[in-house]
Amino acid sequence: MSTSKKSFSSVNPLLETRDVIALKDKTGNLYESISIIGRRANQISVNMKEELHRKLDEFSVHADNLEEVHENKEQIEISRIYERMANAPLQALTEFNDDRIYHRKKVM
């Protein structure tokens, strides 16, 4: 499975129908294809979450007073960018269809 860092914003966030036969043809088994896409989606989700937290931590103020919560326009904009991105399964499906996910069968 590929773990290299890629731009998350290049995937269309809108849902559309998919050809399950084409998914099956890539591995020979529809359920194996879905499993590969699911594992990659988990990786993408974790990477996006870590990246978002890193960016938002730059704005965090470690103060004892909880009443001093103020909004930062840059922080809000970063959050909006991540909200508009395609979700992790759509990104993983796009990578799978574009043959950008490395996978192999385990030999038992």
Score class of each variant (00 low, 15 high):
E77I: 05
E77D: 11
Y82K: 05
E67D: 15
Q43S: 12
R54W: 05
I44R: 01
V61R: 10
S45E: 08
G28F: 04
G38L: 10
E71I: 12
V46Q: 09
I81Y: 06
L52V: 05
E50H: 08
K26C: 01
G28M: 06
K49D: 09
N29I: 02
E67K: 13
V69H: 08
I36W: 00
K24P: 02
N72I: 09
L56P: 02
H53W: 07
I78F: 08
I37T: 02
L52F: 07
H53C: 08
G28L: 06
L66K: 14
D64G: 15
D25R: 14
I44K: 00
S33W: 00
Y31L: 15
D57I: 03
Y31R: 13
E32S: 05
S60W: 06
E67L: 15
E77V: 04
K49Q: 12
N42C: 05
H70E: 15
M48Q: 10
E50L: 13
Y82L: 05
E50W: 03
N72V: 09
E50Y: 07
D57M: 09
R39D: 12
S60A: 14
E83M: 11
K26L: 04
N42Y: 04
A41E: 03
L30D: 04
Q75N: 04
N65I: 12
I37D: 00
Q43K: 11
E77L: 08
I34L: 15
M48T: 02
E51S: 12
D25G: 05
V46F: 06
T27W: 02
G28I: 06
E50N: 14
N65G: 04
H62Q: 14
E51Q: 14
I81E: 13
H70A: 15
Q43P: 01
K26E: 03
G38N: 12
G28A: 05
S35Q: 08
L66I: 14
K49I: 03
S35D: 07
N65V: 11
H70R: 15
V69M: 12
H53F: 09
M48E: 06
E32R: 05
Q43Y: 07
R54D: 15
R39S: 12
I36H: 00
E71N: 09
I37K: 00
I76Y: 07
S33E: 00
L30T: 05
D57A: 10
E67H: 10
Q75V: 02
E68Q: 10
R40K: 15
Y82I: 04
S35H: 06
N72A: 05
I36F: 02
E58H: 12
A63N: 14
L52Q: 06
N42W: 02
S79I: 11
H62I: 13
H70P: 03
M48Y: 01
N42H: 07
E71M: 11
A41H: 03
S33C: 02
H70W: 07
K55H: 06
K24D: 08
G28T: 05
S33D: 00
N47F: 09
Q75P: 00
E71R: 11
L66Q: 11
K73T: 13
D25K: 15
H53A: 13
K26M: 04
M48H: 01
K26T: 03
E50I: 11
N29D: 15
E67A: 13
E71Y: 09
